[in-house]
Deep mutational scan, measured.
Amino acid sequence: GTLHLNGVTVKVPSLEKAIKAAKKFAKKYNLEVQVHGNTVHVH
């Protein structure tokens, strides 16, 4: 999967790991997580 954090793109081995990391990051910075196919966006 691919993880987008505020314009930074990170390749992640699995989508589940990407979503987990995204949710952790989003919670910390009070951001929103959106999943588009195998790409996770945090903004």
Rank of each mutant, 00 (worst) to 15 (best):
V12Q: 03
K20A: 14
L3Y: 00
V40I: 13
V40E: 01
E32D: 09
E32Q: 10
H43F: 14
V40L: 06
A26C: 02
K27P: 13
G1L: 12
A26D: 01
L3M: 08
P13C: 15
G1Y: 15
E16H: 12
Y29K: 04
L31E: 01
K27G: 04
K23I: 14
K24W: 10
G37F: 03
E32F: 08
T2L: 14
G1A: 14
K28L: 10
G1N: 07
L31N: 03
K11T: 11
V8I: 14
H41S: 15
A26N: 01
K11F: 13
Y29D: 02
L5S: 04
H36E: 12
H4G: 04
N38R: 10
E16F: 03
L5T: 05
V10Q: 03
H36C: 06
K11C: 14
F25Y: 11
S14G: 03
H41R: 13
A18I: 09
K20T: 10
A22E: 00
H36K: 11
K11N: 11
K17T: 08
E32A: 09
L31V: 07
V42K: 02
V40N: 01
L15E: 00
H41D: 07
V8C: 15
V35T: 03
S14D: 13
V42R: 01
V35K: 02
V12K: 04
V10D: 02
V12Y: 15
H36R: 10
N30G: 15
N38M: 08
K27M: 05
I19E: 01
Y29G: 04
A26I: 07
G7I: 10
V35L: 07
V10F: 12
V42N: 02
F25N: 03
H43D: 03
G37L: 05
Y29L: 06
E32C: 15
V35D: 01
H43G: 10
E16S: 12
K20D: 09
A18K: 01
S14V: 04
V40Y: 00
E32M: 11
H4A: 04
I19N: 00
T39I: 12
N6D: 06
K11M: 13
V35M: 04
A18F: 08
G7C: 15
K28N: 05
K27I: 05
P13W: 06
A21D: 06
S14L: 06
G7K: 05
H4V: 14
V33W: 05
H4N: 07
A26S: 02
V33K: 00
G7W: 10
H43Y: 13
T39F: 09
L3H: 03
K27S: 08
S14H: 08
T9N: 08
H4P: 02
V42F: 13
N6L: 15
H4W: 10
K24Y: 11
K20C: 00
K24Q: 10
L31Y: 07
Y29V: 06
V8T: 09
K24M: 07
V35E: 00
V12T: 06
E16G: 08
V33D: 00
H43Q: 09
K28E: 09
T9D: 07
F25T: 02
P13G: 13
K17Q: 12
A26T: 00
H36D: 12
G1H: 10
V8P: 02
K28C: 15
F25W: 13
T9Q: 09
H43K: 10
S14A: 05
E32V: 13
I19D: 00
A21M: 13
N6K: 07
I19W: 04
A22L: 15
A22M: 12
N6M: 15
L5G: 04
L3D: 03
N30A: 08
T9G: 04
K11R: 12
K23S: 04
Q34I: 15
E32K: 07
S14F: 09
K17N: 10
T39Y: 10
V8W: 12
N30Y: 08
P13Q: 13
K23C: 14
K23E: 10
N30V: 07
A18Q: 01
H41N: 10
A22T: 03
P13R: 14
F25S: 02
K17W: 14
K23L: 13
T39V: 14
H43L: 12
N38Q: 06
V8S: 06
V33A: 00
N38D: 07
V42G: 01
V12G: 03
H4T: 07
K23M: 12
V42D: 00
V40M: 03
Q34H: 15
K23A: 08
V33G: 00
T2S: 11
K11D: 07
V8Q: 06
H36A: 09
L15D: 00
H43E: 03
V40G: 01
A18Y: 07
